[in-house]
């Protein structure tokens, strides 16, 4: 139902449009974080540090549902769908290939929305700890969320004992994605 970008749009316009998608998405991650029980009890400095380190990874989890492996298209949060071939011309090839691979792995676990949300919370509080002032508070928050996620998943799927470990194995994948791609360039038109 969403229009696919046609030849009338230049690469520059597509790049800027793509860049703009991230602004509302990042704001939504901030709002999401505020809703995580215990997150706002961390110092503001530590909240900011976790968000700066972890938002890209949370977005990667969030965005994976927008990847259509069969059609090889990506639908962005502004509603526009681009074929992979078009996005490659923007120099995003390696990131997108890694994203398709990650989204297939995560998609195969068939998480319910509440499991996905709790997983995103774990991703955020498991982000890089450089600059964190109260490590113990962050670790306690992380442990609590991981316990809650394990409890939710094992209660719902008692016969699939491999699911929770497979899910945790996605955390290093996300860190790799972050390290490889968070230096990608975005472009914005400003007054």
């Amino acid at each position: 139902a969403w229009p696919v970008s046609g030849a009338e749009r230049t690469s520059q316009e597509i790049w800027e449009s793509f860049s703009q998608c991230f602004t509302p998405a990042v704001k939504e991650v901030v709002e999401f974080a505020k809703g995580i029980p215990g997150f706002q009890e961390l110092s503001q400095q530590d909240q900011v540090m976790l968000l700066k380190s972890g938002t890209f990874q949370v977005l990667m989890v969030r965005f994976c549902t927008l990847f259509n492996a069969e059609e090889r298209t990506v639908t962005f949060l502004n509603g526009q769908t681009y074929p992979l071939s078009t996005l490659r011309t923007l120099g995003m090839g390696s990131l997108l290939d890694a994203m398709f691979e990650f989204s297939e792995k995560l998609g195969s676990l068939r998480l319910e929305p509440d499991e996905m949300a709790l997983f995103m919370a774990v991703v955020l509080v498991s982000a890089d700890r450089s600059g964190i002032s109260d490590m113990r508070a962050v670790e306690q928050l992380q442990e609590g969320l991981i316990r809650a996620l394990r409890s939710l998943i094992t209660r719902r799927r008692p016969d699939d004992s491999a699911l929770f470990p497979k899910l945790l194995l996605r955390l290093p994948d996300l860190r790799t994605l972050n390290n490889m791609h968070s230096d990608k360039l975005l472009a914005f038109r400003i007054d």
Binding site: F22, V26, V30, K52
Partner: peptide, 25 residues
């Protein structure tokens, strides 16, 4: 005419987060 600003995804994320917290203080 508008100026083209180019920044990394990491810097953009950082900027949005800083703005959000500053606005809510």
């Amino acid at each position: 005419p508008k100026t083209l600003r180019v920044m990394t995804l990491a810097d953009h994320i950082s900027h949005i987060i800083t703005q959000d917290f500053a606005r809510n203080q």
